[in-house]
Computed example of a mutant assay.
Amino acid sequence: MADTNQDDIGNQVQTLIQRTIDRNIKGLEYFRSPKPKLGVTPKDLIFERGTLKLYHYRPQADEIYRVPLLLVMATTNRGSIFDLMPGHSLVEFLLKSGYDVYMMDWEAPLPHEKTLTLADYTARFIPECIERVQERSGEDDITLIGYCMGGVLSVIYQAMHPDGPVKNLITFTTPTDFSKMEMFNVFTAKEHFDVDRLVDTIGNVPSEMVFQGFSMRTPVSQAAATARLYDNMWNDAFVDSYRKVDAWAVDMLPLAGEYFRDTTKKLMWDNELLTGKLDVEGKIADPRNITVPFLHAVALHDDLVPYEASHPLISLVGSEDKEEIVLKGGHVSLVAGANAAKRLWPAMDAWLQERSL
Rank of each mutant, 00 (worst) to 15 (best):
residue 1 M to E: 14
residue 1 M to R: 14
residue 1 M to Y: 14
residue 1 M to Q: 14
residue 7 D to K: 01
residue 8 D to V: 01
residue 9 I to E: 02
residue 10 G to N: 03
residue 10 G to L: 01
residue 13 V to K: 13
residue 13 V to I: 15
residue 14 Q to M: 14
residue 19 R to M: 05
residue 20 T to Y: 05
residue 24 N to E: 05
residue 24 N to G: 02
residue 26 K to M: 04
residue 29 E to F: 12
residue 33 S to E: 15
residue 40 V to T: 15
residue 41 T to S: 10
residue 48 E to I: 06
residue 49 R to K: 15
residue 58 R to K: 15
residue 71 L to T: 02
residue 74 A to T: 14
residue 75 T to V: 10
residue 76 T to K: 06
residue 82 F to W: 10
residue 87 G to A: 09
residue 89 S to P: 12
residue 90 L to G: 15
residue 91 V to M: 00
residue 91 V to R: 00
residue 95 L to M: 08
residue 102 Y to Q: 03
residue 103 M to S: 12
residue 110 L to H: 11
residue 111 P to K: 15
residue 114 K to I: 10
residue 116 L to F: 07
residue 117 T to H: 00
residue 117 T to Y: 02
residue 117 T to P: 01
residue 119 A to R: 07
residue 124 R to E: 11
residue 124 R to D: 10
residue 132 R to F: 06
residue 139 E to H: 11
residue 140 D to Q: 11
residue 143 T to K: 04
residue 157 Y to F: 07
residue 165 P to C: 12
residue 165 P to M: 12
residue 166 V to D: 10
residue 167 K to Q: 11
residue 168 N to L: 13
residue 169 L to D: 06
residue 173 T to P: 01
residue 173 T to L: 07
residue 176 T to G: 00
residue 176 T to N: 03
residue 178 F to T: 02
residue 179 S to R: 13
residue 180 K to S: 10
residue 180 K to G: 14
residue 181 M to I: 03
residue 186 V to A: 01
residue 192 H to L: 03
residue 194 D to T: 01
residue 195 V to S: 11
residue 199 V to S: 14
residue 205 V to C: 05
residue 206 P to D: 08
residue 210 V to G: 09
residue 213 G to L: 00
residue 214 F to P: 03
residue 219 P to S: 07
residue 219 P to Y: 06
residue 223 A to Y: 01
residue 230 Y to S: 09
residue 231 D to N: 06
residue 234 W to G: 00
residue 246 D to A: 02
residue 248 W to N: 09
residue 249 A to K: 03
residue 252 M to H: 04
residue 254 P to H: 03
residue 259 Y to G: 04
residue 260 F to H: 05
residue 269 W to I: 03
residue 270 D to R: 10
residue 272 E to I: 00
residue 276 G to V: 13
residue 276 G to L: 15
residue 280 V to I: 15
residue 280 V to N: 10
residue 281 E to I: 10
residue 291 T to Q: 15
residue 298 V to E: 06
residue 308 E to P: 08
residue 308 E to W: 05
residue 312 P to D: 00
residue 316 L to D: 02
residue 316 L to N: 01
residue 318 G to K: 10
residue 318 G to C: 09
residue 325 I to P: 07
residue 327 L to K: 02
residue 336 A to R: 04
residue 337 G to L: 14
residue 338 A to G: 08
residue 341 A to M: 14
residue 345 W to P: 06
residue 347 A to H: 13
residue 348 M to S: 07
residue 349 D to Q: 04
residue 351 W to K: 05
residue 357 L to R: 08
